[in-house]
């Protein structure tokens, strides 16, 4: 097991905190951006297609 001893030691990450957390944070951000963008695009497409189909059927 990996004993950090304290939360501050955990965030310090043996002095490499900037690099380890900078990596994990950017990865989380990249995934979050992709998921949010995906949801928005989904909603937008549904609205667009409904409007297009209605407009064409009139």
């Amino acid at each position: 097991m990996m004993e950090w001893g304290s939360w501050s030691a955990f965030w310090a990450m043996g002095g490499y905190g900037l690099y380890v957390w900078g990596s994990f944070a950017m990865t989380a951000l990249a995934i979050a951006v992709e998921v949010v963008q995906l949801r928005q695009a989904g909603r937008q497409t549904l609205q667009q297609l409904k409007r297009l189909n209605k407009w064409e059927s009139e």
């Binding site: 990996m2 990450m13 043996g14 002095g15 380890v20 990596s23 990865t27």
Partner: peptide, 24 residues
């Protein structure tokens, strides 16, 4: 990655980036 994997004898804690760098 953070609570089971041990400290690396050469790179200390910096090596933990491996857990996302290599899969990505």
């Amino acid at each position: 990655s953070f609570f089971v994997a041990p400290t690396d004898f050469q790179q200390g804690e910096a090596y933990r980036v491996i857990f996302i760098h290599v899969p990505a």
